[in-house]
Amino acid sequence: MSKSLFFVVLFSALIVQGCSNSRPALPDLPSIESKVNLHKTWRASVDGNFGESSERFNLVAEDGSLFFVTDKGTLYEIAQENGDKKETIPTDYKPSAGVMRHGDVVYFGTYDAQLVAVSLSTQSVLWEKTLSSEILSEATYAAGKIAVQTSDGWLNLLDAETGDPIWRAKEDLPSLTVRGTSAPVIADGKVIAGFSDGKLKAYSLQNGSLQWSYDVGKPEGRYEIERLSDIDGRLVVKNGVVYAVAYNGTLVALSIDSGSPLWQRSIPSSVGVAVKGELLVAVDMKSKVIALNAKNGMEVWENKTLLDRDLISPTFYRDYVAVMDRGGYVHLLDLVTGEVAAQKVADNDVPSGSRMVVSDKQLFILTPNSSVTALSY
Protein backbone atom coordinates (compact mmCIF):
# COMPACT_ATOMS: atom_id res chain seq x y z
CA MET A 1 0.00 0.00 0.00
CA SER A 2 1.38 3.45 -0.88
CA LYS A 3 1.90 6.00 1.85
CA SER A 4 -0.75 8.34 0.40
CA LEU A 5 -3.31 5.54 0.19
CA PHE A 6 -2.49 4.51 3.75
CA PHE A 7 -3.28 7.99 5.07
CA VAL A 8 -6.52 8.12 3.08
CA VAL A 9 -7.63 4.85 4.66
CA LEU A 10 -6.51 5.95 8.11
CA PHE A 11 -8.29 9.32 7.78
CA SER A 12 -11.49 7.59 6.62
CA ALA A 13 -11.36 5.21 9.55
CA LEU A 14 -10.98 8.09 11.99
CA ILE A 15 -13.95 9.88 10.44
CA VAL A 16 -16.11 6.76 10.75
CA GLN A 17 -14.99 6.24 14.34
CA GLY A 18 -15.70 9.86 15.22
CA CYS A 19 -19.16 9.68 13.67
CA SER A 20 -19.96 6.51 15.59
CA ASN A 21 -19.10 8.20 18.89
CA SER A 22 -21.20 11.32 18.30
CA ARG A 23 -24.91 11.68 17.72
CA PRO A 24 -26.91 14.64 16.44
CA ALA A 25 -28.88 16.80 18.84
CA LEU A 26 -32.46 15.74 19.38
CA PRO A 27 -35.26 17.80 17.81
CA ASP A 28 -37.33 19.99 20.10
CA LEU A 29 -40.08 18.31 22.06
CA PRO A 30 -43.57 18.70 20.60
CA SER A 31 -45.82 21.13 22.43
CA ILE A 32 -48.73 19.24 23.96
CA GLU A 33 -51.68 19.72 26.27
CA SER A 34 -51.27 17.05 28.95
CA LYS A 35 -54.31 14.88 29.51
CA VAL A 36 -52.90 12.93 32.46
CA ASN A 37 -50.38 13.74 35.19
CA LEU A 38 -47.56 11.34 34.46
CA HIS A 39 -45.20 11.57 37.42
CA LYS A 40 -42.41 9.78 39.27
CA THR A 41 -43.62 7.59 42.14
CA TRP A 42 -40.16 6.46 43.25
CA ARG A 43 -36.56 6.12 42.14
CA ALA A 44 -34.05 3.61 43.50
CA SER A 45 -30.28 3.76 43.13
CA VAL A 46 -28.45 0.53 42.36
CA ASP A 47 -24.89 -0.66 41.89
CA GLY A 48 -23.94 -0.42 38.24
CA ASN A 49 -25.33 0.56 34.89
CA PHE A 50 -27.09 -1.30 32.11
CA GLY A 51 -24.79 -2.07 29.23
CA GLU A 52 -24.22 -0.58 25.82
CA SER A 53 -27.75 -0.79 24.38
CA SER A 54 -31.07 0.57 25.55
CA GLU A 55 -32.87 -2.51 24.24
CA ARG A 56 -30.56 -5.22 25.53
CA PHE A 57 -31.15 -5.14 29.28
CA ASN A 58 -34.60 -5.73 30.75
CA LEU A 59 -36.67 -5.72 33.89
CA VAL A 60 -38.84 -8.68 34.87
CA ALA A 61 -41.96 -7.60 36.80
CA GLU A 62 -43.44 -10.57 38.68
CA ASP A 63 -44.93 -11.34 42.10
CA GLY A 64 -44.75 -7.73 43.28
CA SER A 65 -41.02 -7.47 42.55
CA LEU A 66 -38.67 -6.29 39.83
CA PHE A 67 -35.78 -8.58 38.89
CA PHE A 68 -32.74 -7.36 36.92
CA VAL A 69 -28.96 -7.46 36.70
CA THR A 70 -26.48 -4.58 36.27
CA ASP A 71 -23.32 -4.48 34.19
CA LYS A 72 -21.30 -4.98 37.38
CA GLY A 73 -22.84 -8.42 37.81
CA THR A 74 -25.12 -7.52 40.72
CA LEU A 75 -28.50 -9.25 40.65
CA TYR A 76 -31.42 -7.39 42.24
CA GLU A 77 -34.92 -8.04 43.46
CA ILE A 78 -36.68 -4.84 44.48
CA ALA A 79 -40.26 -4.08 45.54
CA GLN A 80 -42.55 -2.68 42.86
CA GLU A 81 -44.48 -0.68 45.43
CA ASN A 82 -41.65 1.53 46.70
CA GLY A 83 -38.32 0.43 45.22
CA ASP A 84 -37.04 -1.11 48.47
CA LYS A 85 -34.35 -3.73 47.91
CA LYS A 86 -35.41 -7.28 48.79
CA GLU A 87 -32.33 -9.14 47.52
CA THR A 88 -28.92 -7.95 46.34
CA ILE A 89 -26.68 -10.70 45.02
CA PRO A 90 -23.19 -9.73 43.80
CA THR A 91 -21.47 -12.00 41.28
CA ASP A 92 -18.14 -11.98 39.42
CA TYR A 93 -19.70 -12.05 35.95
CA LYS A 94 -19.93 -9.37 33.24
CA PRO A 95 -23.55 -9.43 32.09
CA SER A 96 -24.14 -8.55 28.45
CA ALA A 97 -27.94 -8.75 28.45
CA GLY A 98 -30.93 -8.88 30.75
CA VAL A 99 -32.52 -11.60 32.85
CA MET A 100 -35.09 -14.35 32.65
CA ARG A 101 -36.71 -15.63 35.85
CA HIS A 102 -38.39 -18.93 36.59
CA GLY A 103 -39.43 -19.47 40.19
CA ASP A 104 -36.42 -19.19 42.49
CA VAL A 105 -33.89 -19.02 39.64
CA VAL A 106 -32.76 -16.04 37.56
CA TYR A 107 -30.72 -16.56 34.38
CA PHE A 108 -28.50 -14.08 32.53
CA GLY A 109 -25.83 -14.10 29.80
CA THR A 110 -22.35 -12.58 29.71
CA TYR A 111 -19.78 -11.11 27.34
CA ASP A 112 -17.67 -14.20 28.04
CA ALA A 113 -20.33 -16.45 26.44
CA GLN A 114 -21.61 -17.81 29.77
CA LEU A 115 -25.22 -18.50 30.64
CA VAL A 116 -25.53 -18.23 34.42
CA ALA A 117 -28.25 -19.58 36.74
CA VAL A 118 -28.54 -17.94 40.19
CA SER A 119 -30.74 -19.05 43.10
CA LEU A 120 -32.52 -16.17 44.83
CA SER A 121 -33.11 -18.11 48.06
CA THR A 122 -29.53 -19.32 48.54
CA GLN A 123 -27.95 -16.31 46.79
CA SER A 124 -25.58 -18.63 44.98
CA VAL A 125 -24.72 -19.63 41.42
CA LEU A 126 -26.36 -22.97 40.63
CA TRP A 127 -24.52 -23.49 37.36
CA GLU A 128 -22.84 -21.75 34.48
CA LYS A 129 -22.52 -22.97 30.91
CA THR A 130 -20.04 -21.58 28.40
CA LEU A 131 -21.53 -21.29 24.92
CA SER A 132 -19.94 -20.32 21.60
CA SER A 133 -20.12 -16.51 21.77
CA GLU A 134 -21.37 -13.55 23.79
CA ILE A 135 -25.07 -13.47 24.64
CA LEU A 136 -26.79 -10.24 23.57
CA SER A 137 -30.41 -10.93 24.56
CA GLU A 138 -32.21 -12.58 27.44
CA ALA A 139 -33.00 -16.28 27.50
CA THR A 140 -36.49 -17.85 27.37
CA TYR A 141 -37.94 -20.63 29.57
CA ALA A 142 -40.60 -23.28 28.89
CA ALA A 143 -41.23 -26.85 30.07
CA GLY A 144 -37.95 -27.20 31.95
CA LYS A 145 -35.91 -25.94 29.01
CA ILE A 146 -34.07 -22.70 28.20
CA ALA A 147 -33.60 -21.23 24.73
CA VAL A 148 -30.83 -18.68 24.24
CA GLN A 149 -29.18 -17.18 21.17
CA THR A 150 -25.52 -16.19 20.83
CA SER A 151 -24.07 -13.43 18.69
CA ASP A 152 -22.40 -15.87 16.26
CA GLY A 153 -25.73 -17.25 15.02
CA TRP A 154 -26.20 -20.29 17.27
CA LEU A 155 -29.59 -21.00 18.85
CA ASN A 156 -29.16 -23.22 21.93
CA LEU A 157 -31.67 -25.26 23.94
CA LEU A 158 -30.48 -26.23 27.42
CA ASP A 159 -31.82 -28.15 30.40
CA ALA A 160 -32.98 -25.48 32.88
CA GLU A 161 -31.97 -27.50 35.95
CA THR A 162 -28.44 -28.44 34.91
CA GLY A 163 -27.50 -26.25 31.94
CA ASP A 164 -26.74 -29.36 29.88
CA PRO A 165 -27.23 -28.90 26.11
CA ILE A 166 -30.24 -30.56 24.47
CA TRP A 167 -29.80 -29.33 20.90
CA ARG A 168 -28.55 -26.35 18.94
CA ALA A 169 -29.02 -24.90 15.47
CA LYS A 170 -26.77 -22.58 13.43
CA GLU A 171 -27.60 -19.76 11.03
CA ASP A 172 -24.73 -18.28 9.00
CA LEU A 173 -24.14 -14.56 9.55
CA PRO A 174 -23.84 -11.96 6.79
CA SER A 175 -20.53 -10.13 6.49
CA LEU A 176 -22.04 -7.02 8.11
CA THR A 177 -24.70 -7.09 10.84
CA VAL A 178 -26.27 -4.83 13.43
CA ARG A 179 -24.80 -5.63 16.86
CA GLY A 180 -27.43 -7.55 18.79
CA THR A 181 -29.87 -10.46 18.59
CA SER A 182 -33.55 -10.86 19.29
CA ALA A 183 -34.61 -13.03 22.22
CA PRO A 184 -36.09 -16.37 21.10
CA VAL A 185 -39.65 -17.28 22.10
CA ILE A 186 -41.12 -20.68 22.94
CA ALA A 187 -44.74 -21.32 21.98
CA ASP A 188 -46.88 -24.19 20.66
CA GLY A 189 -44.04 -26.69 21.00
CA LYS A 190 -41.69 -24.54 18.91
CA VAL A 191 -38.63 -22.39 19.53
CA ILE A 192 -38.85 -19.32 17.29
CA ALA A 193 -35.84 -17.11 16.65
CA GLY A 194 -34.90 -14.22 14.37
CA PHE A 195 -31.44 -14.04 12.83
CA SER A 196 -29.04 -11.45 11.42
CA ASP A 197 -29.73 -12.51 7.82
CA GLY A 198 -33.40 -11.52 8.18
CA LYS A 199 -34.70 -15.07 8.55
CA LEU A 200 -37.31 -16.04 11.14
CA LYS A 201 -37.16 -19.76 11.92
CA ALA A 202 -39.20 -22.17 14.03
CA TYR A 203 -37.66 -25.35 15.44
CA SER A 204 -39.20 -28.30 17.27
CA LEU A 205 -38.81 -27.83 21.02
CA GLN A 206 -38.25 -31.55 21.42
CA ASN A 207 -35.53 -32.31 18.87
CA GLY A 208 -34.52 -29.06 17.13
CA SER A 209 -35.78 -30.05 13.69
CA LEU A 210 -36.64 -27.09 11.46
CA GLN A 211 -40.41 -26.59 11.22
CA TRP A 212 -40.51 -23.54 8.96
CA SER A 213 -38.50 -20.54 7.79
CA TYR A 214 -39.51 -17.12 6.49
CA ASP A 215 -37.44 -14.23 5.09
CA VAL A 216 -38.65 -11.19 7.03
CA GLY A 217 -35.75 -9.01 5.95
CA LYS A 218 -34.51 -9.54 2.40
CA PRO A 219 -31.00 -8.16 1.80
CA GLU A 220 -31.08 -5.76 -1.13
CA GLY A 221 -28.70 -3.14 -2.45
CA ARG A 222 -25.19 -2.85 -3.81
CA TYR A 223 -23.38 -2.12 -0.55
CA GLU A 224 -23.28 -4.23 2.59
CA ILE A 225 -24.70 -1.46 4.76
CA GLU A 226 -27.71 -1.30 2.43
CA ARG A 227 -28.19 -5.05 2.84
CA LEU A 228 -28.57 -5.02 6.63
CA SER A 229 -31.66 -7.07 7.43
CA ASP A 230 -31.23 -8.13 11.08
CA ILE A 231 -34.16 -9.16 13.24
CA ASP A 232 -33.09 -7.57 16.53
CA GLY A 233 -36.39 -6.36 17.98
CA ARG A 234 -38.27 -8.64 20.36
CA LEU A 235 -40.68 -11.12 18.80
CA VAL A 236 -44.32 -11.16 19.87
CA VAL A 237 -46.60 -14.21 19.82
CA LYS A 238 -50.35 -13.67 20.28
CA ASN A 239 -53.28 -15.96 19.47
CA GLY A 240 -51.34 -18.27 17.20
CA VAL A 241 -49.61 -15.44 15.33
CA VAL A 242 -45.95 -14.41 15.54
CA TYR A 243 -45.08 -10.78 14.74
CA ALA A 244 -41.55 -9.81 13.67
CA VAL A 245 -39.85 -6.84 12.03
CA ALA A 246 -36.48 -6.54 10.29
CA TYR A 247 -33.95 -3.69 10.31
CA ASN A 248 -34.20 -2.96 6.61
CA GLY A 249 -37.18 -5.05 5.66
CA THR A 250 -40.72 -5.89 6.57
CA LEU A 251 -43.13 -6.05 9.48
CA VAL A 252 -44.87 -9.39 9.14
CA ALA A 253 -47.54 -11.47 10.85
CA LEU A 254 -47.05 -15.23 10.41
CA SER A 255 -49.05 -18.29 11.36
CA ILE A 256 -47.14 -19.98 14.15
CA ASP A 257 -48.26 -23.38 12.85
CA SER A 258 -46.97 -23.10 9.30
CA GLY A 259 -44.94 -19.90 9.03
CA SER A 260 -47.28 -18.68 6.30
CA PRO A 261 -47.66 -14.88 6.11
CA LEU A 262 -51.06 -13.51 7.12
CA TRP A 263 -50.09 -9.96 6.18
CA GLN A 264 -47.00 -7.79 5.85
CA ARG A 265 -46.13 -4.10 5.69
CA SER A 266 -43.00 -2.25 4.59
CA ILE A 267 -41.93 -0.82 7.95
CA PRO A 268 -38.20 -1.26 8.58
CA SER A 269 -37.32 -1.13 12.27
CA SER A 270 -34.55 -2.07 14.70
CA VAL A 271 -36.88 -2.32 17.71
CA GLY A 272 -39.77 -4.62 18.53
CA VAL A 273 -43.51 -4.16 18.30
CA ALA A 274 -46.25 -4.22 20.94
CA VAL A 275 -49.58 -6.00 20.51
CA LYS A 276 -52.70 -5.63 22.63
CA GLY A 277 -56.03 -7.00 21.47
CA GLU A 278 -56.46 -5.96 17.84
CA LEU A 279 -53.92 -3.11 18.00
CA LEU A 280 -50.26 -3.44 17.00
CA VAL A 281 -47.87 -0.52 17.51
CA ALA A 282 -44.49 -0.25 15.76
CA VAL A 283 -41.70 2.36 15.62
CA ASP A 284 -39.86 2.74 12.32
CA MET A 285 -36.22 3.75 11.72
CA LYS A 286 -37.13 7.47 11.77
CA SER A 287 -39.11 7.15 15.03
CA LYS A 288 -42.48 7.44 13.36
CA VAL A 289 -45.00 5.59 15.54
CA ILE A 290 -47.47 3.51 13.55
CA ALA A 291 -50.57 1.68 14.80
CA LEU A 292 -51.97 -1.18 12.74
CA ASN A 293 -54.85 -3.59 13.00
CA ALA A 294 -53.10 -6.72 14.28
CA LYS A 295 -55.45 -9.00 12.33
CA ASN A 296 -55.07 -7.53 8.84
CA GLY A 297 -52.21 -4.99 8.97
CA MET A 298 -54.41 -2.01 8.01
CA GLU A 299 -53.19 1.32 9.36
CA VAL A 300 -55.15 2.79 12.28
CA TRP A 301 -53.06 5.92 12.87
CA GLU A 302 -49.52 7.28 12.73
CA ASN A 303 -47.66 9.87 14.78
CA LYS A 304 -44.82 11.91 13.23
CA THR A 305 -44.33 14.42 16.05
CA LEU A 306 -41.48 12.40 17.61
CA LEU A 307 -39.40 11.95 14.44
CA ASP A 308 -35.64 11.54 14.92
CA ARG A 309 -35.91 11.24 18.70
CA ASP A 310 -34.54 7.64 18.63
CA LEU A 311 -37.50 5.91 20.24
CA ILE A 312 -37.18 2.50 21.88
CA SER A 313 -39.75 -0.30 21.67
CA PRO A 314 -43.34 0.71 22.47
CA THR A 315 -45.11 -0.65 25.54
CA PHE A 316 -48.83 -0.63 26.30
CA TYR A 317 -49.51 1.17 29.58
CA ARG A 318 -53.08 1.37 30.87
CA ASP A 319 -55.06 3.52 28.39
CA TYR A 320 -52.03 4.54 26.34
CA VAL A 321 -48.97 3.26 24.52
CA ALA A 322 -45.66 4.45 25.97
CA VAL A 323 -42.49 5.21 24.01
CA MET A 324 -39.21 6.60 25.36
CA ASP A 325 -36.65 8.71 23.50
CA ARG A 326 -32.89 9.20 23.69
CA GLY A 327 -33.38 12.33 25.78
CA GLY A 328 -34.98 10.32 28.57
CA TYR A 329 -38.56 11.44 27.94
CA VAL A 330 -41.46 9.00 28.18
CA HIS A 331 -44.38 9.88 25.89
CA LEU A 332 -47.89 8.48 26.29
CA LEU A 333 -49.83 8.21 23.02
CA ASP A 334 -53.60 7.93 22.81
CA LEU A 335 -54.63 4.46 21.64
CA VAL A 336 -57.42 5.80 19.42
CA THR A 337 -55.82 8.84 17.80
CA GLY A 338 -52.06 8.44 18.37
CA GLU A 339 -51.80 11.96 19.79
CA VAL A 340 -49.26 12.55 22.58
CA ALA A 341 -51.29 12.85 25.79
CA ALA A 342 -48.45 13.21 28.29
CA GLN A 343 -44.68 13.37 28.49
CA LYS A 344 -42.30 13.13 31.42
CA VAL A 345 -38.54 12.95 31.72
CA ALA A 346 -37.75 9.62 33.37
CA ASP A 347 -34.43 10.48 34.96
CA ASN A 348 -32.31 13.61 34.50
CA ASP A 349 -32.35 13.80 30.71
CA VAL A 350 -30.73 10.42 30.15
CA PRO A 351 -32.01 7.68 27.85
CA SER A 352 -33.47 4.42 28.96
CA GLY A 353 -31.14 1.60 29.98
CA SER A 354 -33.72 -1.04 29.16
CA ARG A 355 -37.05 -1.80 27.64
CA MET A 356 -39.88 -0.41 29.73
CA VAL A 357 -42.06 -2.84 31.65
CA VAL A 358 -45.57 -2.36 33.04
CA SER A 359 -47.14 -3.87 36.13
CA ASP A 360 -50.59 -2.80 37.27
CA LYS A 361 -50.62 1.02 37.32
CA GLN A 362 -46.85 1.59 37.19
CA LEU A 363 -44.32 1.88 34.38
CA PHE A 364 -40.76 0.85 35.27
CA ILE A 365 -37.52 1.87 33.56
CA LEU A 366 -33.81 1.19 34.07
CA THR A 367 -31.67 4.24 33.34
CA PRO A 368 -27.91 4.28 32.62
CA ASN A 369 -27.05 6.44 35.63
CA SER A 370 -27.49 3.55 38.06
CA SER A 371 -31.16 3.91 38.95
CA VAL A 372 -34.59 2.39 38.48
CA THR A 373 -37.54 4.75 38.05
CA ALA A 374 -41.26 4.09 38.50
CA LEU A 375 -43.78 6.35 36.77
CA SER A 376 -47.53 6.43 37.23
CA TYR A 377 -50.64 8.54 36.69
Results as ranks from 00 to 15, higher is better:
residue 3 K to N: 13
residue 5 L to R: 11
residue 19 C to N: 09
residue 19 C to M: 12
residue 20 S to H: 11
residue 23 R to D: 14
residue 31 S to T: 15
residue 32 I to D: 06
residue 33 E to K: 10
residue 35 K to R: 15
residue 36 V to N: 01
residue 36 V to G: 02
residue 41 T to E: 13
residue 42 W to V: 02
residue 44 A to M: 11
residue 45 S to T: 11
residue 48 G to H: 04
residue 63 D to P: 03
residue 64 G to D: 14
residue 65 S to M: 13
residue 66 L to C: 03
residue 68 F to G: 00
residue 73 G to V: 10
residue 73 G to R: 03
residue 77 E to Y: 00
residue 78 I to C: 00
residue 79 A to W: 01
residue 81 E to V: 09
residue 84 D to V: 05
residue 89 I to V: 15
residue 94 K to F: 12
residue 98 G to I: 05
residue 99 V to C: 08
residue 99 V to F: 06
residue 102 H to N: 15
residue 105 V to Y: 04
residue 109 G to Y: 07
residue 111 Y to H: 15
residue 115 L to P: 01
residue 116 V to H: 02
residue 121 S to M: 03
residue 122 T to M: 04
residue 124 S to I: 03
residue 125 V to R: 05
residue 126 L to F: 06
residue 135 I to L: 15
residue 138 E to I: 06
residue 139 A to I: 04
residue 143 A to R: 13
residue 145 K to Q: 14
residue 154 W to T: 08
residue 155 L to K: 05
residue 157 L to H: 00
residue 162 T to M: 08
residue 163 G to D: 04
residue 164 D to V: 12
residue 164 D to I: 10
residue 174 P to R: 06
residue 177 T to P: 02
residue 182 S to K: 03
residue 182 S to A: 15
residue 184 P to C: 10
residue 190 K to L: 12
residue 192 I to Q: 02
residue 194 G to I: 05
residue 198 G to V: 07
residue 202 A to K: 08
residue 204 S to I: 08
residue 206 Q to W: 08
residue 207 N to R: 06
residue 208 G to E: 04
residue 210 L to A: 07
residue 211 Q to P: 04
residue 214 Y to A: 05
residue 217 G to Y: 00
residue 222 R to H: 10
residue 231 I to G: 00
residue 234 R to N: 14
residue 245 V to N: 03
residue 245 V to Q: 05
residue 253 A to G: 02
residue 254 L to T: 02
residue 255 S to E: 09
residue 258 S to L: 06
residue 258 S to K: 09
residue 259 G to Y: 08
residue 265 R to I: 02
residue 268 P to I: 01
residue 271 V to E: 00
residue 274 A to S: 13
residue 279 L to Y: 06
residue 282 A to H: 11
residue 284 D to F: 07
residue 290 I to G: 06
residue 298 M to N: 15
residue 312 I to K: 05
residue 315 T to L: 07
residue 318 R to S: 13
residue 319 D to T: 09
residue 321 V to F: 11
residue 323 V to Y: 00
residue 324 M to N: 03
residue 324 M to D: 00
residue 326 R to S: 14
residue 330 V to Q: 06
residue 330 V to W: 04
residue 331 H to A: 10
residue 342 A to L: 08
residue 342 A to R: 01
residue 350 V to H: 14
residue 353 G to D: 13
residue 356 M to Y: 02
residue 357 V to M: 03
residue 357 V to C: 02
residue 358 V to Q: 10
residue 360 D to I: 08
residue 361 K to D: 15
residue 372 V to M: 05
residue 373 T to D: 05
residue 374 A to Q: 01
residue 374 A to T: 06
residue 375 L to Y: 02
